[in-house]
Amino acid sequence: MSDPILRLSGITKAYNAGKPREVQVLQGIDLSLDAGEVVALVAPSGAGKSTLLHIAGLLDTPDGGTVQITGEDMTGQSDRRRTRMRRADVGFIYQFHHLLPEFSALENIVLPQLANGVGRGEADARARDLLDKVGISARADHRPAALSGGEQQRVAFCRALANAPKLLLADEPTGNLDPATSDQVFGALLDLVRATGLSALIATHNLELAGRMDRQIRLEAGRLVPL
């Protein structure tokens, strides 16, 4: 049996650690994601879901516990090694698209590939294929300001998958959209995830969207519980 794509073991995290006003955010988090599994992380604002995602994606370090990605223990690894792992195997999507405004939709997806050593022709072809998968290939040459909110977020999805990661982490990826657009865009994200076969941990407060995933967990009082 292969290792999980993501394994969190005993993750703890506190802010103002050791001080009188210490806030314990995560208290012994254990979580595994298998290859191709899409898991919903449900939590109210301020519960620590962004902190958990940042730790899972090596953007933050826990106070205790271990983080394994594709079977490799990243605990205590150098910043350089963590950066290489993020660049190769982890994709991020946030509530706001954070696209580079001076570049087209296509270029926003090409650039992270070029930074990862991919040739321009190959990067361009992959970017066009991803845009086609989310139904906006006709908007490839438009800059973000000329795109609708839903289109901007679809481009952000494609950018997160540009380097063919094994793990996708998404923090309220449709939370900035109206309900109708959110439903359509989330469907595009799920289709893209399924088509590429990667594992995904998607934070959402929308129980209807959460129900469309393989499994649902809730972050409650610093611990994960089944939903």
Rank of each mutant, 00 (worst) to 15 (best):
E220M: 15
Q27L: 09
E22W: 03
L209M: 14
L227N: 07
L99C: 11
K19E: 14
A203D: 10
V118Y: 00
S199P: 06
A170V: 09
T61W: 01
A125Y: 00
Q152N: 12
V90L: 06
M1I: 11
T66E: 13
L147R: 07
G71D: 07
F92P: 00
A125M: 05
S9G: 06
F96T: 08
A145Q: 12
P101I: 02
D171H: 05
A180K: 15
D183P: 04
T12N: 13
N116F: 01
L161Y: 06
V23L: 11
P20M: 06
G18C: 10
A146I: 04
L114Q: 07
D171F: 05
I29D: 03
I29G: 03
P173K: 07
A105Y: 01
I69K: 00
D141H: 13
R126K: 15
G36N: 04
G10T: 08
A170E: 04
L26G: 09
A56D: 00
G36D: 02
T83H: 09
R21H: 13
I217K: 03
R154Y: 04
D214M: 13
L161V: 08
L177V: 09
K19I: 02
G65H: 09
G18E: 12
T61F: 03
R80S: 14
A40T: 06
K19H: 12
D89V: 07
G135A: 10
Q77V: 13
A127E: 02
C158S: 12
G211H: 15
G211C: 14
N16Q: 14
I202H: 04
A14G: 12
R86M: 09
R128N: 01
A146V: 06
L130I: 02
H54F: 12
S32N: 08
V25R: 04
D34I: 02
G187Q: 09
A195D: 15
I29W: 01
G10M: 10
R126G: 00
G36Y: 02
N206Q: 11
D3A: 15
P165Q: 08
I11D: 00
N108V: 07
A180T: 14
P4F: 10
A125D: 12
A156T: 10
L52H: 04
S137H: 09
A200N: 03
M213E: 08
A200T: 06
S78Y: 10
A138E: 14
Q77A: 11
Y15T: 08
P20E: 07
I5A: 04
L33W: 04
G91Y: 05
A138N: 13
V193Q: 05
S199R: 07
D191T: 15
L99M: 11
S32P: 00
L100R: 02
D79R: 11
A200Y: 04
P101E: 04
I136A: 01
S182F: 07
Q68S: 12
E102C: 02
I109F: 01
S148Y: 11
L53G: 02
S9H: 14
H98G: 03
A145H: 11
M85P: 00
A164F: 09
D30R: 05
A180H: 14
S78M: 08
T75D: 05
A145I: 11
L167K: 11
A221Y: 10
Q184R: 14
N16K: 14
A200R: 01
H97E: 05
A35K: 14
